[in-house]
Amino acid sequence: MPSLKDLKIRINSVKSTQKITKAMKMVAASKLKRAQEAAEAARPYAERMEKVLTGLGASVAGQPGASPLLIGTGKDDVELVIVASSERGLCGGFNTNIVKAARIHLRELIAAGKTVKILCIGKKGFNVLRREFGDKIIDVKDMSGIKKLGFADAQTIAQEVLAMYERGEYDVATLFYAKFQSALVQLTTKQQLIPTPLPEAANENEAADELGGAAYDYEPDETAILDDLLPRNVAVQIYRGLLENAASEQGARMTAMDNATRNAGDMIDSLSITYNRTRQANITKELIEIISGAEAL
């Protein structure tokens, strides 16, 4: 039976923990708002890019000399798996879910006899993955110094990824991240980056519709435009993934901290009841002692 003093100390410590989790929840909520705005602001560019690619890709894909970013290297022996996670913990199952999805994919690839290379963005994912795939991790991108994620940050990563592709270091690149749905729901998403998957247009007409149904003049020509566009698309996709990831992280943290605050509240309640009962029991005990002492006289 803990003494009254011990109970008081425990109640106070849970109370201060609750204050911290409450503050963290509010911080996460305001960061989430900003992250969501950034993700929304990036949407128009990605959408327009997709439209252009759909229209162009359909007409170029069949031609010889199309960019390897579009048609691939013709092999799929080496796969680069990019795992985006967070830099900081205390965000519930956020990192665990991403890593779990990545791990399943990695094990499948290894079982199929393929070579895998792993690029970690964010050190939380790296810390878990290195236990099982330590020798396969080629690089870890530290994002902790970045306050506000800009396109330039994504572009730096994209340039490295593309340079490795051009040197023939891998055949396929896949990106793992958490897509933001709501503060409660984040979908772990696997997305193929290279070769660029073209959104399927049902037929030629639909592809033309994407471009406004008009016959276009191309300057310099379709292939050249596509060659220029595809590398940029990789950067845009990475940027979008990272933005979604950032919003998801804050959403997950907000939910986790909300739960923690509630748990702390429950704990304070039950500790308070124990505290009051103990206090009552002590008083009763003292009374009995006095009464029985008086009776004995």
Binding site: V52, L211, A215, Y216, D217, Y218, E219, P220, A224, I225
Partner: peptide, 19 residues
């Protein structure tokens, strides 16, 4: 500033695409 030279886009320009 198009890749093949500057061009001026005026209302109702013919559809085109340029880097």
């Amino acid at each position: 500033p198009g890749a093949d030279g500057d061009f001026a886009a005026l209302p109702a320009h013919a559809p085109m695409m340029s880097t």
